[in-house]
Design a binder for these strands. Structure first.
Lengths: 341, 341
DNA sequence: GTGAAAGCGCTAACAC
DNA sequence: GTGTTAGCGCTTTCAC
């Protein structure tokens, strides 16, 4: 047993490990880094010393010498910082963190303060991290556009300008296809007046989901003017629904660009005494538990959010380690039919 | 203008800054670190060189030499990783990140994988970070109990065992007082049969909020048996409400240990044809926008979650920098009266 | 396969 | 006030 009154043991160094194993620091280092050119017995001895001493490499020293930091930045623009209130982003972060927990990389979370735009940029390009993950509502953001020249970067979502993606990498879903399937589902159930509550048109998901609705509606020759916009918040969804209803045109279904606005639409529909789905069917987008636990449970387009985060991290690590990866990774969406449609 | 075809500029070092400013590395370092013992003119020259070169200190080198890492770990147990789905935790993380963004410290987010409990622990005590923030449902968690002997640690919530807090620091709210005020509000509005939907009894907030209800109810000599338990999820709140109603005892109000379970209670109440608040008043706890956007908007006990995160980070930084801080920081809750009561 | 030696970029005594 | 001098703990040629 260890002495109860043991002095706080000095942090073990590679030097100590090497001494205990009777080898040089170089060899000990090789074992730590899994170099193949070490005799099994020697490696074993070093490993024994390592856990006898409870040795953990000093990251600072390691990265100073190797010029790799083993750190990955997760950059969140301040304006998106409310991100955390959004279960979708929350899940992405979770996916990233969980993937990285299995690797040697460490997650460095940065809130990019807008008043000091250069601070974040400088931090990133100054070799403090091996790569960056950018999670922003406005994907392909402003200040991060040319970052990929200095270090590997992976963005959530799709590039803002399809042609301008440069050397950037993206991980996202096909919003157009996802929303389109939602509309077709509604039409398939006999709905003929399918309105849309769209998201902001300066964000790719806002644009693409609207486009998905538009294409489906055009295909069937239905009314393409039945659209109102919101900003992804529940309140804005409620307002948009109100405006849609106030047009006086009968509506028997509405696809909403995210679950939270769909919840707002629920509120308005109830106010007006309309039943869901009997009078108006509602379909959301995201699949978070706002919708899952709503009444009636919301039919929605599921995005694999945790997997999205996981994939972002995975792509970045591959780039860093020089493995080949596609520039754009698209994960599938899936329509989850519940009781609101 | 800079040449368009400039080679990728080598990362500037302190050495280069010093040379350009015509001083020694030591002096340059002093300027970078804000030492007072530098002649203003010299300092100015160095500063000029710094931004001419766009110099950013290399963290690895700095921390290797100074034995400080300028990194703070945010530890989230895997079991709590769903944390991110909980707006309350999400806000705490946001508060932490935003505070740290203003300091020299950097946030290192770790998911403590339960299958390798020592990995996280070792990482923390091996000098990779200057301090740790522990955000766990089970505050004062298992493996982190004795961490404070090795590095500064701040926990969210209150200590599990009041006497066993040792050298630990805590930041939280007074759940007992908060819930008590909620109950008194209900009684003040004439409710006489105030039930409780409590949280898990292995978490301080679960225990304390129940205790707050109990004390208030006891004071007025009301029924103390009207309690059912949930696990903080909406579904469990719905179930608990169902069990409460099934007892056949008339209930005219219910305090729920968090907003999400309150949303579940809403669902059940509606199922049973009971009106909120006419038949049953409902009060939640947290104040997130599940409740805010519910219909009717939920009366709830507000927790200053972003501030809680901010305070955690602030306390930790103070400890690290040797400033005095209280071991326990309690932030105020506030009853937000909306339409459900 | 293994060791010796030379740094990685910076801070911190210690002289001056 | 400023420069000199040692390292911080590790990786990585380069010989052997």
């Amino acid at each position: 047993m260890t002495s109860e009154v043991s002095e706080s043991t000095p942090t073990p160094t590679l030097e100590m490990v090497a001494a205990r194993a009777g080898v040089s620091r170089a060899t000990a280092s090789r074992v730590v880094n899994g170099s193949p050119k070490v005799t099994p017995e020697v490696a074993e001895a070093v490993r024994a010393a390592i856990d006898a001493l409870n040795y953990v490499p000093n990251r600072a020293a390691r990265s100073l010498a190797s010029r790799r930091t083993q750190m990955i930045a997760l950059v969140i623009p301040e304006s998106t910082a409310m991100v955390f209130a959004d279960p979708f982003f929350a899940s992405i972060v979770q996916g990233i963190a969980m993937y990285l927990a299995e690797t040697e990389y460490t997650l460095n979370m940065l809130i990019a303060v807008e008043s000091k735009p250069d601070k974040t940029r400088q931090y990133l390009i100054s070799g403090n991290v091996d790569g960056a993950l950018i999670v922003s509502h406005h994907s392909g953001d402003h200040s991060y556009a040319h970052l990929e020249k200095s270090l590997p970067v992976v963005f959530a979502g799709r590039p803002l300008l399809p042609d301008a993606q440069g050397g950037s990498y993206f991980v996202g879903v096909d919003d157009i296809a996802g929303e389109r399937i939602a509309v077709e589902h509604l039409i398939g159930r006999g709905r003929r007046s399918v309105a849309a509550i769209a998201g902001p048109q300066d964000m790719p998901p806002g644009v693409d989901r609207l486009e998905g609705w538009r294409r489906a509606v055009q295909d069937r020759g239905l009314d393409e003017t039945l659209v109102e916009f919101g900003d992804f918040t529940p309140a804005s969804g409620a307002d948009a629904m109100r405006r849609l209803l106030d047009r006086g045109i009968p509506i028997d279904a509405v696809v909403v660009a995210n679950d939270q606005m769909a919840m707002g639409a629920y509120t308005t529909l109830r106010e007006r005494g309309l039943r869901i789905p009997e009078d108006v069917a509602v379909v959301g987008f995201d699949d978070n538990y706002f919708g899952l636990t709503a009444s009636p449970p919301l039919t929605t387009v599921h995005q694999p959010s945790v997997e999205l985060g996981r994939a972002m991290a995975e792509v970045l690590v591959k780039i860093i380690e020089g493995h080949p990866v596609d520039q754009v990774t698209i994960l599938p969406t899936e329509l989850v039919v519940r009781e609101s449609s």
